[in-house]
Design a protein around this nucleic acid. Sequence first.
DNA 1: GATTGTATACATGTATACAATAATACTACC
DNA 2: GGTAGTATTATTGTATACATGTATACAATC
Lengths: 223, 223
Amino acid sequence: MKAGIHRSEEARALHSLSRDLFDKLREDILTERLKPGEKLAEQRICEAYKVSRTPVREALKQLAAEGLLETIPNRGAFVSGLSRGDLEDIFVLREICELQAVRWAIERITDERLAELFEIFEFMEFYTEKRDTKKMTEINANFHKLIYAASDCRMLRHILSSYQTYIRHSRQTEPCAEADLPAILAEHKRIFDAFHAADAEAGASAMRAHIRGARARALGHTV
Amino acid sequence: MKAGIHRSEEARALHSLSRDLFDKLREDILTERLKPGEKLAEQRICEAYKVSRTPVREALKQLAAEGLLETIPNRGAFVSGLSRGDLEDIFVLREICELQAVRWAIERITDERLAELFEIFEFMEFYTEKRDTKKMTEINANFHKLIYAASDCRMLRHILSSYQTYIRHSRQTEPCAEADLPAILAEHKRIFDAFHAADAEAGASAMRAHIRGARARALGHTV
DNA sequence: GATTGTATACATGTATACAATAATACTACC
DNA sequence: GGTAGTATTATTGTATACATGTATACAATC
């Protein structure tokens, strides 16, 4: 185990009806299997997932706190859903937050984590050469997660992890085109260099370029 | 009633044990009556607030979703709390978000809301002359709330309202010094002018000045 | 014919009872 | 005396039963 602090995140993987329901319902909302405006009657969910109302209610309360549901007292929970415009806004917000994350991360990163970042970057170089797009997507996620962690701001981590789930399915499961790999690597290198130079603004600027590149590539594929 | 959309917010004022508990516990965490790291045993809360475990659990789940509690499966909920550094970070995040809010608000505000903003501003002028610091604080909050609403981004509103509660008690109940009123009014005027000019960047710049002014004033008082 | 009042049905809010898991204390053994 | 294993206790997780509030349908009145 790495550290006591991470314990709860590991424990999160444990099964519990309440937690499972939360995840499933969130997934269903984000994939629009549950349409915006739709009412989520507790009884119906109980029957659908074969559980009692207690875990259902707890899951609904959590989703409401995350803003995915709108609950009206004594009337029930209604799916909020995300419009096309909402998604665009979220991208902007994510960019803003991610820039701050990298600034803080550069200022605050520990030697241990910096070594870890180096390791991740080496993996990136390796898999770029191997042209393994799947692995690259996975490592890319780790790269960003490490930056969030290094930013050492709980609030920010919380926000960004929400975004992560919001936009998860908006970027196709298909990770990235093989042809883009070198460009992606170069973008990450700029970020990584900023960490070594301990230059927060350079890092923010590199991150901005990376995010905009990612968006351009995503639009290039889907549109 | 203004519009159907606001119904849930009004309904929020209704009493329910679950909702009341949520508010009280949040208050207790933010005021550090409940110390960071402290364990919140369900039974204890039940006895303290004379309610059953069901509403207690629901309140805890919501607080956990907001990041004020850390829950470990089968072990319970622990207060996260905010360090001095956390608060400083939150100010930075709030500034970032508020700048984006005003940009969007200027781009998206409806004529109706613009009229409302004008009205609020006139109230500000009025109460500045009357040197009513209490009213000014109240109206200031409305001013900002209207901007959040005009930004027309649910996610952003959600984040900013969280911040609002986080920092609520960090800025003393005592609103602002009488001597500061003219400066505050001038700052708001710059923001308001940007709305009329429909200049998003001018608005962001004015808002930045306002926030930094507010921080300087706050530090000047408390330190 | 439209509207309002009431009764019934239904959904949510809360309390309690039961099951499963983790923490603790005690005993036995090394 | 210390450690490991087990039994007990306490706390969380889940299910069910009851209370309260809301929506709908029907009837009575204007």
